[in-house]
Write a protein that binds this DNA or RNA. Sequence first.
DNA 1: GTCTATAGGGGGATAGAC
DNA 2: GTCTATCCCCCTATAGAC
Lengths: 210, 210
Amino acid sequence: MAKKKLIKAEDASTEEKIKAAARDVFHKKGYAATRTRDIAEKAGINLALLNYYFRSKEKLFDIIMLETVFEFMQSMALVMNDNKSSLEKKVELITFNYIDFITREPNIPIFMLSEIRNNADGLMEKLPIRQLVLNSIFFKQHQEAVVKGKIAEPDPLHFLMNILGLIVFPFIAKPLFKGIGGLNENQFNKLMQERKKLVPVWIKAMIKVK
Amino acid sequence: MAKKKLIKAEDASTEEKIKAAARDVFHKKGYAATRTRDIAEKAGINLALLNYYFRSKEKLFDIIMLETVFEFMQSMALVMNDNKSSLEKKVELITFNYIDFITREPNIPIFMLSEIRNNADGLMEKLPIRQLVLNSIFFKQHQEAVVKGKIAEPDPLHFLMNILGLIVFPFIAKPLFKGIGGLNENQFNKLMQERKKLVPVWIKAMIKVK
DNA sequence: GTCTATAGGGGGATAGAC
DNA sequence: GTCTATCCCCCTATAGAC
């Protein structure tokens, strides 16, 4: 067992190479537009090997999808359940982490959101996302602030929509904003870095009014 | 000419039936996942007819895409160039119109954003969206407010990102928020109706801080 | 204009040699 | 495990009758 992991680590096993390539292509083009031949080529292996390891395009996709969603939810859970930080500090952490994360992995938001739509109930229904949010310290701190009259709008969904909307949407509509602003990739990323500081301040201001 | 239009109006010409069906399917599934057979079936006609009228899947798609983008930009331009309303009023109008529009056509945002991504430069480069925004009264009013010190953050792109993020993102991530909130379609739509009043208030509060 | 039938090609998957 | 060659289905597009 230990030996197997060692081997994997030192030469990036074929299986891992295929998964890495699949991740890239699926994230960029979505399930339907992806051809297994593209994945094989990118992985530097033969098409037959893909099926040898993963049986079918669909099974490979399911694995990538699951890992992507899991990665996303885990990073979410990590911040939302930190018991040392205040609600305000958590907003800063979420903003900071997500903007960095999406800058590194700019294809994940549209990928997840458009593939989830096709699967609709399939994925959402079985994932414990509702429990994750409802049981989080983040959620409880929000409730508490509402009771104390520190937050005007009581519905936590609006709160989440606002935070994620301000953080994620600019990336999703990147081509649009690059077009409007006449920006290149670097200039766009610089804008996003600015938002690391701006979003928490804006959220703070929004909290007080209704 | 007039006669032709009359005929079209009274029996919804085959061409229009195909386009309507194509619109639905493309918007819901995207280009790659759409099969021309689905469109033909939905239009109640034979597959061969689709090619008779539109030559190819791609040409049909281009038409739908163009019309969709045009419809979107026109509704945008209409509000942004209204010369009777203040900037504040325009934010209210945009919020109101877009929430109603997307509630009627919930598939358009993800459709446009994910298909634009594949086409990247193809579409964005040739559309006059930059000019549309830069020449708009909306834009000039924003500049003016910045000069007068009424808006803390001077970059109009941040302003646009915030408005659209708060309005559009909840719809894009609808399955996610329905899952978290345990909502059905009606309850979700009710939340969106609430946001018609909330978003302008929030924007107003954000404007003052930096 | 509208249909049936079919050509043509692309892409997922497998057989079988090494 | 990895490759080459190939099968086979599905989907787009066209031919040709009506």
